[in-house]
């Protein structure tokens, strides 16, 4: 199919990057890296990034960005920690309240971006600080006011960090999120609107799409995904600290970029982001297994993003040039 060419090619490139990385680590690390248990571990590590990545991907498709994901996760975890420490409310209520806080935080981002017209990266950079601050303000302290981490070991909650059969619950949740996310993007009117808003806001508006409302919902969804990511992170740690998700915001964005979600908006999907999330997790895992300084993963991540983005930009320029030449040729044929 001719129409699939460009996006399929991009998908192959993401998969290729992942494959190259796996092969590289397999050669360097051998059985230490290349075994089934380790792959399950990698997928587990990729899961939270994948879940949060669903929301971030949608934000990026609208030509936006969400830099506040790590802070929202922390805020959600700390909200739950407070409920856990100071009330006797049942665990499901605690989780629902956590999710509501995440959605509210996301809607804040959406409002700031859609209705106050603050550029996405500035707005979410600011809320990244705000949500982190709020987390510290509500953090659990000891009698001297020193911030403590709150253990959350009750089975009903901690079991979220366990495995069911071969797969961890978080992985199953991630798979659900990816499937639902892909369906929402590709098979609902809302999903089509998300692409339309990202590709051309003016045209979307002319076609009767409510751009601001779409943005509001997208960031709300991103907040929801962060909440779920925060819940699983706290469950895995069996505790909540104010530092949860510090620096996390980098990973879902990097995953989306590697997975072919164009930062200029209007293209990409959550399956691509999943591939990117696996790439990030493999990188982290491999560096660890090879006993390399963890610092290398930061360098490699950054370099890969720059290279991928440069490639995307050069590739787009190339396609535009081809289209122009095609146009000129057609014009000359008259």
């Amino acid at each position: 199919m001719k129409k699939m060419k460009q996006t399929t090619l991009r998908r192959f490139i993401s998969l290729g990057l992942l494959l190259v990385l796996i092969i590289l680590f397999a050669i360097l690390g051998g059985g230490l890296f290349f075994n089934a248990d380790n792959f399950i571990e990698i997928v587990r590590d990729a899961s939270v990034v994948g879940i949060v990545g669903v929301g971030v991907t949608m934000a990026i498709i609208t030509a936006g960005i969400d830099l506040s994901t790590g802070s929202v996760m922390a805020l959600v975890a700390m909200t739950m920690a407070n409920i856990y420490a100071y009330t006797l409310w049942p665990i499901p209520v605690m989780i629902i309240l956590g999710i509501l806080v995440g959605i509210a935080a996301g809607l804040c981002n959406g409002y700031i971006i859609g209705y106050l017209h603050v550029p996405e990266f500035i707005g979410t950079l600011a809320t990244m600080g705000i949500f982190r601050s709020l987390t510290y303000i509500i953090a659990i302290t000891d009698d001297n006011g020193v911030i403590q981490s709150q253990p959350m070991t009750v089975y009903g909650f901690a079991s979220l960090g366990y495995a069911a059969g071969y797969f961890y619950l978080v992985t199953i949740a991630m798979i659900v999120f990816i499937i639902v996310g892909q369906i929402v993007l590709k098979f609902t009117r809302f999903g089509t609107n998300v692409y339309a808003v990202g590709a051309n806001k003016k045209a979307a508006r002319l076609s009767g799409i409510k751009v601001e409302k779409t943005q509001l919902i997208v960031y709300g969804i991103s907040g929801f995904c962060c909440a779920v990511g925060g819940i699983f992170t706290a469950a895995r740690l069996q505790s909540a600290t104010a530092a949860i998700g510090d620096g996390f915001e980098f990973d879902p964005i990097a995953a989306a970029v590697v997975g072919g979600v164009a930062l200029s908006g209007g293209s990409g999907d959550v399956v691509g982001t999943l591939i990117g999330a696996l790439f990030m997790a493999t990188l982290k895992n491999g560096v660890l297994k090879l006993n390399m300084n963890t610092a290398y993963q930061y360098v490699i991540k950054g370099v890969i993003i720059i290279l991928v983005v440069m490639f995307d930009s050069a590739y787009k320029a190339h396609m535009d040039r081809l289209a122009k030449e095609r146009g000129a040729k057609e014009g000359a044929e008259e």
Binding site: K3, T192, Y195, A196, A199, N200, K202, A203, A204, L206, S207, G208, I209, G266, S267
Partner: peptide, 14 residues
């Protein structure tokens, strides 16, 4: 006011 990354049909029935 067409949206480039969508198909012809998606644009027509947006």
């Amino acid at each position: 006011s067409v949206i480039p990354p969508l198909t012809v049909a998606q644009n027509v029935f947006l």
